[in-house]
């Protein structure tokens, strides 16, 4: 019997070690996997189920021990990493617009691309939780801006539109802000820290 000690390892390492061992084992050979991590314990069981391997839980305390015998054929469609991902929530990302243009280069092209970006975002199946606007990005949320309608529609879909107060002040646009709310550096930092992804158009 093979013993694979994965104590101290975090997902997906225990699953990868298990897979390596399985590949080296001969048919009907038995293996015991020792784990000390609840998440890896749960994920390994899902992984073995996907591989169509019948396993037994020999112990759950103090360490967790899973035992199985290698079947004749090991199927399985997914990689170990696939069992360890954090499930993505639908709107766990924020869009940060740090200038009124998309990318750097010709300003007129950049402005056109930004409008197209916002209109595409409206049709995206996965919407962000917030759109943060700073520096010249705040110009997009000002009265008469040609991006205003798009931002309003995004706001109606439940997305927070937040403009940097210092920037509105600097460009003297505070009175003309026409969509969303005014925010500060703490909030801008906090929203980006908490998001699993940040998108800069």
């Amino acid at each position: 019997m093979k013993t694979i000690d994965t104590r101290g390892l975090r997902c997906p390492a225990p699953l990868i070690e298990t897979k390596k061992a399985i590949d080296k084992m001969s048919e009907a050979e038995e293996a015991e996997i020792i784990l000390d991590n609840d998440v890896a314990f749960k994920n390994l069981q899902e992984y073995l189920t996907d591989l169509k391997i019948n396993y037994e839980i020999k112990s759950t305390h103090p360490e967790m021990i899973i035992r199985f015998a290698k079947p004749g054929e090991v199927a399985g469609s997914k990689r170990p990493e696939d069992f360890c991902g954090v499930p993505s929530t639908s709107n766990d990302y924020v869009v940060v617009i740090k200038s009124s243009e998309m990318g750097s280069g010709d300003p007129e092209l950049g402005a056109l691309l930004m409008r197209a970006f916002l209109n595409s975002l409206l049709e995206n199946t996965v919407l962000p939780s917030a759109i943060l606007l700073y520096n010249s990005g705040v110009r997009l949320a000002i009265e008469n801006a040609d991006t205003l309608d798009s931002l309003r529609q995004l706001e109606e879909k439940g997305i927070m539109i937040m403009s940097c107060g210092t920037c509105l002040d600097f460009y003297q646009l505070k009175e003309r802000l026409s969509v969303g709310i005014i925010t500060n550096m703490y909030k801008i930092l906090q929203l980006q820290t908490n998001a699993s992804k940040v998108i800069y158009p």
Binding site: L112, R115, A116, N119, S120, S150
Partner: peptide, 10 residues
């Protein structure tokens, strides 16, 4: 310039 509203999109 002609006051017509359009939406740019891909």
């Amino acid at each position: 310039d002609n006051g017509l509203k359009v939406q740019v999109m891909p």
